[in-house]
């Protein structure tokens, strides 16, 4: 498959975006970073991303709502939820609404890469993510 894996990262902590951008680029993803749900949703209208990584808790809108919008528009998109606190109810709700997986803060970049690789696998991007990983010292 020639197409590169497109990833949208949404987290209201700017540092998260700043660090994940290069981390995910290294494994061959096209990464777009957003700090607010509004612009991110606008962008999602324009483009169907393969993977959306979103924080669950944000000031303006919570991640569940972002998940709902993404699923409405493109059910194929793999949505990975970043949680600060994973309550059973919220996990169940997110799962029912089509979330691909969860990752709890604090996490290492490699952990997210692993989840993204799994999502890429499920989309048929075999080898794409994994091929990039051996760079890690």
């Amino acid at each position: 498959m020639d197409e590169r894996l497109s990833v949208l990262v949404l987290d209201d902590e700017p540092i998260v975006g700043r660090r994940l951008q290069p981390a995910l680029a290294k494994i061959g993803c096209d990464v777009e970073i957003f700090e607010a749900p509004g612009p991110a949703l606008e962008r999602l209208k324009e483009k169907a991303f393969h993977i959306v990584v979103t924080d669950i808790r944000m000031d303006d809108m919570d991640g569940i709502e972002v998940l709902e919008r993404v699923m409405e528009r493109n059910p194929e998109t793999r949505v990975i939820m970043i949680t600060g606190y994973a309550t059973v109810e919220m996990a169940r709700e997110a799962e029912a609404k089509g979330a691909f997986d969860f990752i709890a803060k604090p996490f290492k970049p490699q952990e997210l890469r692993d989840v993204i690789a799994k999502a890429a696998d499920s989309l048929g991007f075999h080898g794409v993510a994994h091929a990039a990983v051996p760079d890690v010292p």
Partner: peptide
């Protein structure tokens, strides 16, 4: 969790790159 996550990501990336 937020600052710790930021520290974790930053430190990991600093080490990696």
């Amino acid at each position: 969790n937020n600052p710790i996550n930021n520290i974790m990501l930053t430190a990991e990336m600093l080490k990696e790159d």
